[in-house]
């Protein structure tokens, strides 16, 4: 077993090898066994970028299974609020009730799901499990429009129904609780429907807490994913024209040339295009690898929670799951062999 295999995934010309992690007890001689102290020492989180919607951070020194668990939980099990029930009073737009309801259901809301409870199907709606919205739009001709106007936006009033038309109706204590951050759709300009004079939409909408596993509208992320840190190994020096060609095989900034010799400047920028493996001149000169326990994690939030809060929630869900599991094992009378 080479050192390479221990820590690197190798991207070949035709296949990926050494994919599985080997840090599993009893696979190799002693030193690879999982050890909490060692883990604590090696484990690192480095936040690369963070804003309201997106976050990129590195998870270093962790097993793929754990990183994947976070990813899976983020997609499917971190709860958010989404519109679940719609009470139509009027809809004579061209969109069918079901279709319009489906569209509106997918609109992300900025309500913090942690402040709400799940609502079972037979629960009565309360201010703790339901957010009420009202949508009331009527399209009319714009009296101020020029007679030869062709743009529907100018010609008519309310020709487009946007998510901003969803008006929050605070119930109970909601007004106080959400005083500093009134509940509304994350984006104001999501087109819900188009209307023409005489058409109107009037509806009451109830948002509920749910998880992405049940329906994608409750998924708090546009996507959460990770990739492994690329590690481009130049085995033999690449120089001259070859170096320029080599540089062009990678996204800008990955490879730089110094004194006519190519060197890896920023392997992060590599996108696994494997372009350099196609060319004969680089044969045996380069090896594309990935660091197996270095995850470049990215979370794109839909906007209900900030990505860092989402990750926290995901971690909490994972902890709860572990607790559950432990409890279940205890209940079975089997000894729990590890601590939290």
């Amino acid at each position: 077993m080479t050192d390479l295999m221990k820590s690197r995934v190798v991207l070949g010309a035709h296949n990926v090898s050494h994919v599985s992690s080997s840090d599993f007890p009893h696979n190799y001689d002693g030193d690879l066994a999982w050890d909490i102290e060692k883990f604590k020492k090696n484990f690192k989180v480095v936040v690369g970028s963070l804003n309201e919607m997106d976050m990129e951070f590195d998870l270093i020194g962790i097993d793929a299974a754990i990183a994947n668990a976070f990813r899976r939980i983020l997609i499917a099990e971190v709860p958010t609020m989404a519109i679940e029930s719609i009470f139509f009073h009027d809809n004579n737009s061209v969109l069918f009730d079901e279709v319009l309801a489906h569209r509106i259901g997918l609109v992300p809301l900025n309500a913090d799901p942690r402040l709400f409870e799940f609502r079972q199907w037979d629960d009565t709606p309360t201010d703790l499990n339901t957010i009420v919205f009202r949508l009331e739009v009527k399209c009319t001709t714009n009296p101020k429009a020029l007679p030869d106007e062709v743009d529907p936006k100018q010609k008519y009033i309310n020709s487009n129904v946007y998510s901003k038309d969803l008006i929050w109706q605070p119930k109970g204590a909601q007004e106080e609780v959400f005083a500093d951050k009134p509940i509304k759709p994350v984006h104001d300009d999501i087109l819900l429907a188009k209307l023409r004079p005489g058409q109107s939409i009037v509806m009451d909408l109830h948002a509920q807490k749910g998880i992405g596993k049940e329906h994608a509208k409750w998924s708090p992320v546009a996507t959460a994913s990770y990739r492994l840190l690329p590690d481009i190994q130049i085995l033999k020096p690449i120089t001259g024209d070859d170096a320029i060609k080599f540089q062009k095989c990678f996204p800008k900034g990955t490879i730089e040339i110094e004194k006519g010799q190519a060197y890896v400047a920023n392997p992060r920028k590599d996108t696994a295009s494997r372009e350099c493996l196609r060319h004969k001149e680089f044969e045996d000169k380069v090896r594309l690898t990935r660091v197996r326990d270095h995850f470049i994690f990215s979370i794109e939030s839909t906007g209900a929670l900030t990505p860092d809060a989402l990750f926290e929630s995901a971690a909490q869900v994972l902890i709860d799951k572990c607790k559950n599991m432990k409890q279940a094992l205890n209940d079975m009378g089997l000894p729990a062999t590890y601590d939290e």
């Binding site: 035709h14 990926v16 992690s21 793929a64 990813r71 990739r227 492994l228 996108t271």
Partner: peptide, 22 residues
């Protein structure tokens, strides 16, 4: 930044490990 042949590196959503094939 993609492979010329349209084949991408994919990661399994179940195991979290990279797939061995492009």
């Amino acid at each position: 930044g993609y492979s010329y042949c349209g084949k991408d590196v994919l990661t399994s959503g179940i195991t979290g490990e990279m797939l061995q094939a492009y």
